[in-house]
Amino acid sequence: MEITGLISALIIGAIIGGLGRLAIPGKQHVSLLATILVGIVAALLGTAAATVLGVADTSGIDWIELALQVGLAGAGVSALAGRARTKLHR
């Protein structure tokens, strides 16, 4: 992977992770780094799911793919926030 690909993955991961975090109500106790990592994984899994569903390569913006990515990022951030919450209450 080239440096431009790595920088692009970080930027897209931050955007997807941030959108996923915004989709969840309330305050999440998840670090920025964890949000970016969840966003990167969600972007990859969302793209794979969209490819399997046959909606990844459309003309214009792939809204279904983006919705899958943001939904997966929201689920990931929610899972991490719930895990952090249980650690705080122990």
Rank of each mutant, 00 (worst) to 15 (best):
Lys27Thr: 03
Gly60Thr: 05
Glu65Asp: 12
Leu44Met: 11
Ile11Thr: 11
Ala67Cys: 05
Ile11Gln: 07
His89Pro: 00
Gly26Phe: 08
Ala56Asp: 03
Leu53Glu: 10
Ala48Phe: 04
Glu2Val: 04
Leu33Lys: 12
Val30Tyr: 05
Arg90Ser: 00
Gly74Ile: 11
Ile12Asn: 01
Ala48Val: 06
Ser31Met: 09
Gly18Thr: 13
Ser59Arg: 07
Ala43Trp: 13
Ile12Val: 13
Ile40Thr: 03
Gly76Pro: 15
Val30Lys: 10
Ala79Ser: 10
Val30Phe: 04
Thr51His: 15
Ala14Cys: 03
Val41Arg: 13
Val41Pro: 07
Trp63His: 06
Leu88Val: 07
Leu19Trp: 14
Gln69His: 10
Thr86Cys: 00
Gly46Leu: 06
Ala34Arg: 08
Ile7Asp: 12
Gly60Ile: 07
Gly74Tyr: 06
Val70Tyr: 05
Thr35His: 05
Ala79Asn: 11
Leu80Thr: 06
Met1Asp: 12
Gly26Trp: 08
Ala23Trp: 08
Leu33Ile: 14
Leu22Phe: 15
Val52Arg: 08
Leu33Ser: 13
Arg21Ile: 01
Leu19Arg: 03
Gly60Asp: 10
Leu88Gly: 01
Gly82Asn: 10
Gly18Val: 12
Ile7Lys: 12
Ala56Glu: 06
Ala84Glu: 13
Asp57His: 14
Gly54Asp: 06
Gln69Trp: 02
Val38Ile: 15
Ser31Gln: 03
Thr58Tyr: 09
Gly46Asn: 06
Gly18Asn: 09
Asp57Cys: 04
Gln28Arg: 10
Leu45Trp: 14
Gly82Asp: 10
Gly71Ala: 09
Arg90Leu: 01
Leu19Thr: 04
Arg85Gly: 00
Thr51Ile: 12
Thr35Val: 14
Leu6Ala: 05
Ala34His: 12
Arg83Gly: 00
Ile40Arg: 02
Ala34Trp: 02
Gly13Gln: 02
Gly82Lys: 07
Gly71Asn: 13
Leu53Cys: 11
Asp62Arg: 10
Asp62Phe: 04
Leu45Phe: 13
Ala43Gln: 13
Leu37Trp: 01
Ala48Cys: 01
Leu19Phe: 14
Thr86Tyr: 00
Gly18Gln: 09
Thr51Asn: 09
Gly82Glu: 10
Ala49Pro: 01
Ile64Met: 11
Leu88Ala: 14
Leu80Gly: 04
